[in-house]
Nucleic acid binder design. Structure first.
Lengths: 344, 344
DNA sequence: ATTGGCAGTCCGGTGCAAGGAGTGCCAGGC
DNA sequence: GCCTGGCACTCCTTGCACCGGACTGCCAAT
């Protein structure tokens, strides 16, 4: 059974180990922290902590190192989340304020978060289902390939290429037909909610003759796909920090880099993390469903875009990281981002 | 003075070292390659090669390793560029054929190139000055922020946000004014060459009264900037390969990752490399102007987009790499890409 | 020009001993 | 019942010496 003081010892071990990367022994603790008891007593507490799987010794007669479970305990019950310094707040504010388009703001934000935490930072592109269609543009790239561009009033621009069915020798649509189609589509769609696009387009399609109708249906499919596609991307920054913290990955950083390249998996993981009451979620080491990330921790926070939808922003790094500081940074950045995007 | 056979020895050393990562000695060479002379003779040749700075010994009495200069000699005079296997050709073809929009094609291409070479692959987004304006869309994001979207007939969509001057309390443009502006701009721009956009817009601006004019000038600036901006980006893939070849970076992969993140510098370097008669350019180790890349080599090839402009595609990896194979891969992929984009 | 031979150099692994850090446990004190 | 000092023990780390292996460079002979 771990005593009250035992938890304080755990906190000390985590802090010391995170700071020094050295397994920490009982003597170090009595020297560096004022517990008012002897090393032998600390040793008893440490034995209890080890019993409970909160710390482990790399080998007999070495200092202790926190386990994933130990970090979990630290994060849930022991870490006081430090407030950001005013200097840091200022940095965030000035960094984000030079507004530009959405992609740009996200790119800046994530770069800043990576600098703040010295870890890899990631942000999920927000979904904006409440926004309205501003314009749809069709561009014929070749007789059989059509570029569809969708512009919404939230400032998002998405594009998609559709392959046109090409039954006979002659192309299905020529420039004139396309111009008419464009006018019609814009006629019914401009001003509509994004969510209503598929239905509206469907009813338009029904008024058309068969060959033209197929084209319209494909365009409709592209437009709906375009909305979903976008949220399937992550913007990230600070990959170089992985090399900086390389010594904290006992294996190699290879699987981590692979996971980052394989955005899809990482994104799903990121999205499924559920925020706690502090607005941040932490996934530590082997808690993580991806084997390649068994030695990394992921922090995720949520931010709210103008349409009120929540997307994720967070950092990824070795399990040996400064949880207090990083949680604070993620939270602060997420808040500023919400504020910034809400203003628009 | 390096003899004829000396160069053959150099070739053998490079090939062997690239294959085995072991410094190669005279005995290895006579064993593995059929020179028909004794080890002592090879030793003499090696002494000459060392004299000329083409190879070096990590320490006294060890085998030799190619220097940057040695690799250079190998690449320029000794490497026969292997043709791609038919399997590889097939892979390239099928991989690239599922066309989509430009960004998508480039993303696929670069991913494939990284798999083909086991290195980091990069591609520069092509400039398309010969293409025509298809549509310009203006979206008011907030009273003082305007999103400008430019669609060209080459299938490119670019966006930019402009800050509007906001002199008095009331906004400079409202929805009605914007609609009129949009109509006017499209009226003069649609169908124009991209290169003519600034001039055309300028003459339109001159017909307008002062406040409206400022707005138009800003939009014009954004449109020209948008064209330049885009080519200032690289799409890359295969970063994980850096971790795989980590042992080939005597120092650390940190500076390499940093250079990759700092796209701007890398891009300039990439752009300034001049292609040789084989259509590929190679920059080896310290030849490289960036200190962080002193242990990496960069291969660059050119591809031609529909408008006939040339952009770069290439790979980046440790100086100890398979130059023959990688040059062949870059060249093959660049050709297919030119063909693919030319067709559209 | 090429060759075999030989001395010399350096790396890398191994075995051994000493030093140090840290633990576990126990018996005694508050 | 909790805390403490002490002690034996374990294991890592460092330094040292040593040896074998892999080369090279040079030289005299062909």
């Amino acid at each position: 059974m771990v005593s009250e003081r035992g938890l304080d010892v755990l906190r000390a071990i985590v802090q010391d180990y995170v700071a020094s990367r050295e397994p920490v022994g009982s003597k170090t603790i009595v020297d560096r922290y004022s517990f008012g008891v002897s090393a032998a007593t600390i040793r008893n507490d440490m034995a209890a902590l080890e019993e409970d799987g909160l710390i482990a010794a790399p080998h007999t007669s070495s200092g202790r190192v926190p386990t994933d479970k130990g970090y979990r305990m630290f994060v849930d019950h022991l870490a006081e989340v430090r407030a950001m310094t005013t200097a840091q707040r200022m940095a965030i504010r000035t960094f984000l304020e030079e507004g530009a388009d959405l992609d740009d703001v996200l790119a800046r934000t994530v770069r800043m978060l990576s600098q703040l935490t010295n870890q890899v930072a990631l942000v999920q592109i927000p979904v904006v289902p409440r926004s309205y269609v501003r314009h749809v543009e069709l561009v014929l790239l070749s007789p059989s390939r059509l570029l569809v561009v969708l512009i919404t009033d939230a400032g998002r621009v998405d594009q998609k290429v559709v392959e046109l069915p090409q039954g006979d020798d002659q192309p299905l649509v020529d420039d004139v037909a396309l111009a008419e189609l464009r006018a019609r589509i814009n006629g019914v769609l401009v001003g509509r909610l994004l969510a209503d696009v598929p239905a509206t387009l469907q009813s338009l399609a029904e008024t058309l003759p068969a060959p033209r109708r197929t084209v319209l249906e494909r365009i409709g499919a592209a437009l709906s796909a375009t909305v979903d596609d976008r949220q399937d991307r992550l913007i990230l920054a600070g990959t170089a920090n992985l090399a900086r913290t390389e010594r904290d990955f006992p294996g190699s950083i290879l699987p981590v880099l692979e996971a980052i390249e394989e955005q899809v998996v990482l994104l799903r993981l990121f999205r499924e993390m559920e925020l706690d009451e502090r607005g941040v979620s932490v996934s530590i080491g082997r808690e993580n469903p991806l084997v390649g990330l068994a030695e990394t921790s992921i922090l995720a926070g949520g931010y709210r875009s103008s349409a009120g939808e929540v997307a994720r922003i967070g950092v990824l790094g070795p399990t040996r990281m400064d949880y207090s500081g990083n949680i604070a940074a993620v939270r602060a950045v997420a808040r500023y981002l919400s504020k910034l995007l809400g203003e628009e």
